[in-house]
Design a protein around this nucleic acid. Structure first.
Lengths: 241, 241
DNA sequence: CGGGAGGTTGACCACCATCAACTGCTGTGG
DNA sequence: CCACAGCAGTTGATGGTGGTCAACCTCCCG
């Protein structure tokens, strides 16, 4: 994993957020990265930790999650290459959630001190970071809507729509490409459902023609239908903004 | 509503977020405000609007909410005096949610252009704004956890705990002070429950001694008990940070 | 070939939604 | 001052969505 492949992933994400100039990108590129390969299901950050570095996800997928008193896990977001995880720790050093890989992954760590210097020198870089955080917040609001008002099938469809839509915008794969990296338990933890019920709903979605199933992997068969079932309108992702 | 009473409310909130200096506060104080009094249940922002001003809530309470396809309303956050509503519109002009007063209120509008100038001139003001947005996001994550994993009674207790805890931190009233400004329908819209079930749960919470009821208004009788029932740990509010 | 994790299916049940009726505030006009 | 309307709150009866429990399957990997 070379420095140039790391910055390439990062720049693609940042320039989608804000039209940064050469000087700003050059300064970003000079940030001190520490690359690391990590297995699936490893913790990157644990709730309560004091964190002084941020994590750029370069390859693989990750999830943030929290636990309630009873030990039930709630996944609050999924992440993909290009995402800057826990940029927030620059301003809120104490982690309020866990961050865990869900596949094997490659990450690049950057000290928050380096990012702070950047944001003070380049207000438009600060704005790009802030905008990323604001879009994050918009996604959380949609998840609140999803969990609070929609039934199980709609909820699952919506969550999967969001994931593939974001993945496409990141230039990773078109929406219909195979390979959802989730176990049914993870889908359940993200949607507030049991794995048993997730299984039933995936079967119904397949019977309705939204998915095709080959062995254990589900593939989107009809993107328009899945969006319709999932009550999915991507405006909240602010991808065009 | 004088300019000085507006800035007083705002400065109290901002200085809790970041230790701003005299020069920074003076610049903030010179922002062009437009004060307005608004009745209860009026929209300040509607989803889909293009917004070029931000709203400082000076008196009263407000809520942000979204609708799903079926027209069911989900409240995603509550706001109180000092909160800067829709600071996000500086970077994301298209509103992804509605903003509505829940009591009569006084607000001060500030053009986003003025805030942009401030953030470019004063990185620490930009950081204070960013931090406010990050705490917002942390609260949304907790709501996702609340809706996804907790049962009705716990959910309601948690939501009410959060509200009074934040209200106390804003210097509005101690946690045990009366006067929750919510209808049972609003509590239901925030917790993903029907008003009927909210009513039953409030009765049980009262029977358990967490609340006392006088006529239609509920008052916290035992704060420790309410926190225990609601699985409430305020760390996610980052109030000490 | 065997063990284990994740997936699949069925039976049963509980929490919360729904529907409906009624109560008790509160404000307004006669 | 009372009558009335209207809305929020309250209570009960009934039902459905999704949870729980348990068994079994199937894929994958050693």
């Amino acid at each position: 994993m070379s420095t140039s492949s790391i910055t390439a992933v990062w720049f693609r994400k940042l320039t989608r957020l804000m039209n940064l100039n050469g000087e700003e990108l050059a300064a970003l590129g000079e940030s001190p990265f520490t690359a690391e390969k990590i297995d699936a299901n490893q913790y990157l950050v644990k709730e309560g930790n004091t964190v002084d570095r941020c994590c750029l996800l370069v390859r693989g997928y990750a999830a943030r999650h929290k636990m309630n008193r009873a030990g039930q896990r709630q996944i609050v977001s999924f992440h993909m290459p290009g995402d800057m995880l826990d940029l927030q720790h620059a301003l809120l050093p104490r982690a309020d959630h866990n961050l865990q890989t869900i596949t094997s992954a490659e990450v690049a760590w950057v000290p928050v001190a380096a990012l702070e210097r950047l944001t003070f020198a380049f207000p438009r870089v600060a704005a790009a970071f802030a905008k990323d955080g604001l879009i994050d917040a918009s996604i959380f609001r949609e998840w609140v809507l999803n969990l609070g008002t929609r039934d199980a099938k709609t909820r699952i469809a919506h969550m999967l729509c969001e994931f593939v839509q974001r993945r496409e915008a990141h230039g990773i794969a078109p929406v219909e490409a195979v390979d959802l990296p989730f176990s049914q338990e993870q889908i359940g933890d993200a949607t507030g459902l049991t794995p048993v019920h997730v299984n039933r709903m995936l079967r119904e979605l397949t019977e309705q023609g939204a998915f095709t199933r080959t062995g254990r992997s589900y593939c989107i068969a009809d993107w328009q239908k899945l969006k319709a079932i999932g009550d999915f309108d991507p405006a909240y992702l602010h991808q065009a903004a």
